[in-house]
C-alpha cells in the first residue's frame, strides 16, 4: 500500500470515528451492490462477495421479511453478531468443552432502513446442501469421513444446547464442511439463548400470542445424518 503524506489533521473524536466507520461500510455496501456475486440465499437474507479472493462476505437481511407489525420475529443483524461473537470466543468455547472453531468470525453489523448488513468471514468449504446437490465427493477434503464428521457435529450441538444456546434452523444449507473436514454452523437468525430452566426454546410465544414451533437442533442433525449415510 502506498502512503502519501497529506497535510490533514486526523479527526479522532468518537463521533468523527463513528462517521468514518459508517462511511467506509456504506461505501463497501454500495460497491458490493454494483459488482458482486451471490454465494447463498435463504428465506430472509442473501450472502454476497466481491470476488473469490475475499475473506469477508456480506450478509444482507431483508428486514421486511423478519418483522411483522413493527416487531421482529427473527434476530436482526445486531443480535446475530452477538451470537457469532460469543461463539467465536475461544475462552467461552473452552468453557463449554468445544476445542475448535464452529462459526464464521463476525466483523461489523449495521441496520439501515429496510436492510440489515452483517460483514463476516467467508467459510472455505461446502455446505451439506451443496454436497447433496452435486452428490459428489469431489469437493470434500481428502480422507473425509462422514461418521466422524457427524460425531463432531452432534458433540457441538450437545454442548451448545447444554449451554442454553439453540440454533433452531439447522438445515443442510446452514452447516458447512470446512477444508479441515470440520463442521461450521452459519445463520443465527433464528437462534436463541434461554435463561430460565422452564423456558422451552423450541416453542416460543410471539407478540400476537401465537406459539412458534421450531424443530429441535438434534432432531435436524439426526435427520441429515440418516439422509447422508443412506446416500453414500
Amino acid at each position: 500500500m502506498l502512503f502519501k503524506e497529506k497535510n490533514i489533521k486526523i479527526e479522532d473524536g468518537f463521533e468523527k470515528r463513528r462517521e468514518i466507520f459508517n462511511k467506509i461500510i456504506e461505501d463497501t455496501i454500495s460497491e458490493l451492490e454494483k459488482n458482486c456475486q451471490s454465494i447463498g440465499e435463504g428465506k430472509t437474507a442473501e450472502v454476497k462477495i466481491m470476488n473469490e479472493r475475499n475473506s469477508i462476505c456480506l450478509k444482507i437481511v431483508d428486514n421486511s421479511k423478519i418483522r411483522k407489525n413493527g416487531v421482529h420475529l427473527n434476530n436482526e443483524v445486531n443480535e446475530e453478531i452477538e451470537f457469532l461473537d460469543k461463539l467465536s470466543d475461544k475462552n467461552f468455547l473452552q468453557t463449554i468443552g468445544i476445542e475448535k472453531k464452529i462459526v464464521p468470525k463476525p466483523m461489523f453489523s449495521k441496520q439501515s432502513g429496510n436492510y440489515g448488513f452483517l460483514f463476516l468471514e467467508k467459510i472455505e468449504g461446502i455446505t451439506i446442501e451443496d454436497f447433496l446437490k452435486q452428490k459428489s465427493n469431489n469437493k470434500l477434503p481428502e480422507n473425509f469421513n462422514w461418521e466422524s464428521y457427524f460425531a463432531k457435529l452432534e458433540n457441538i450441538i450437545t454442548k451448545l444446547n447444554s449451554a442454553k444456546l439453540f440454533h433452531r434452523d439447522l438445515h443442510e444449507g446452514n452447516i458447512f464442511i470446512n477444508k479441515e473436514g470440520d463442521p461450521i454452523i452459519i445463520d443465527f437468525g433464528d437462534a436463541c439463548e434461554t435463561f430460565l430452566s422452564d423456558e422451552d426454546p423450541y416453542h416460543q410465544e410471539k407478540y400476537d400470542g401465537n406459539i412458534i414451533s421450531y424443530i429441535p437442533d438434534m432432531q435436524h442433525v439426526k435427520r441429515i445424518k440418516e439422509k447422508i449415510l443412506n446416500l453414500i
Binding site: 463513528r18 459508517n22 467465536s88 468470525k105 463476525p106 466483523m107
Partner: peptide, 8 residues
C-alpha cells in the same frame, strides 16, 4: 452499527 469483539 456494531463492531465485533473478535475484530477489536
Amino acid at each position: 452499527m456494531k463492531v465485533s469483539k473478535d475484530y477489536r
